[in-house]
């Protein structure tokens, strides 16, 4: 029964994603760029593939993430705005099921996007004769999928706390600045005083460190770097689940108290 309800809510997300044209545009432009990049021959030289691989892997991650941020941030505000949440919740549908169904829907759409990009990436690499490191690519994909889960749940929480535009903006900024913040905090931590150190430590535990889900560098230089040990993947999966569960739980608690 719950599975069916989850599926129905998730299907609603997919149908909406198909109806919304901007998602198409984002995915198609990215696909076009990846395909075009595979055709570029710098100075007419063959066999140069690292630039293609690096740019494509970053583009894939960026395009999928932004697609998911837009899609996830819109889910709950849109339901309230169009009042479609009322007939939905009038049925015997628990609010938790509703949120988890939405989460699975957006996550599924993100995985679909990433899968599409991945196919184009693999096709482009093969057409260039570039090496593919299957285990590293699989691990990269797994980490990216886990990252999407964290992003979806984070955007759900943001969209409940603030309005749609602010949720998209905050979600994008947190994603984009996550890596820069970690680098910066590592640099200044040694010279920071007690209070600042506390703030830095807090942010590193409260905000997810998205660059940990990116294995693109090792995929590009896969000739010298091996696959990750299983315990690293297990810890990363735990890390993603922990953040995702925390965000969803918070979203649910706020959503539950919200008057319809």
């Amino acid at each position: 029964m719950i599975c069916r309800q989850l599926f129905l809510v998730a299907r609603g997300v997919w149908l909406e994603a198909i109806r919304r044209k901007e998602i198409y545009v984002m995915v198609l432009i990215s696909c076009g760029l990846i395909a075009a990049l595979a055709q570029v021959r710098f100075f007419g030289l063959e066999s140069l593939s690292k630039f293609y691989r690096e740019t494509t892997l970053h583009l894939m991650s960026l395009a999928t993430t932004f697609t998911v941020i837009v899609l996830a941030s819109r889910q709950l505000p849109r339901e309230f705005e169009t009042r479609s949440i009322y007939p939905l919740l009038a049925r015997p549908l628990h609010r938790g099921t509703f949120i988890v169904g939405k989460l699975l829907g957006v996550w599924g759409a993100g995985i679909f996007c990433f899968g599409l990009f991945l196919m184009i990436y693999i096709f482009g690499s093969l057409s260039m004769g570039a090496p593919i490191y299957p285990m590293l690519l699989l691990q990269h994909s797994l980490l990216q999928v886990e990252m999407l889960l964290v992003i979806v749940s984070m955007c759900f929480l943001l969209s409940i706390l603030v309005n749609l535009d602010a949720a998209i903006t905050f979600g994008s900024l947190i994603y984009l600045l996550s890596s820069a913040w970690v680098t910066f905090s590592n640099q200044i931590y040694g010279s920071a005083d007690g209070m600042l150190r506390f703030v830095i430590r807090m942010t590193s535990w409260v905000l997810p460190q998205f660059m940990l889900f990116d294995l693109s560098e090792k995929n590009v230089h896969g000739d010298v770097w091996g696959a990750l040990p299983w315990w690293v993947l297990a810890q990363m999966t735990g890390y993603a689940l922990l953040f995702s569960a925390g965000y969803i739980l918070l979203s649910f608690m706020i959503f539950k108290r919200r008057e319809l």
Binding site: L143, V182, N186, Y189, G190, R197, I200, R201, S204, Q209, M211, L212, D214, L215, E217, K218, H221, W225, L228, P229, V232, Q235, M236, Y239
Partner: peptide, 17 residues
Amino acid sequence: EKDYRSWLGNLHRQIKP
């Protein structure tokens, strides 16, 4: 030794080159 993030830092060093 210089990373305040303990196990997160270890993960970072494992995942990135």
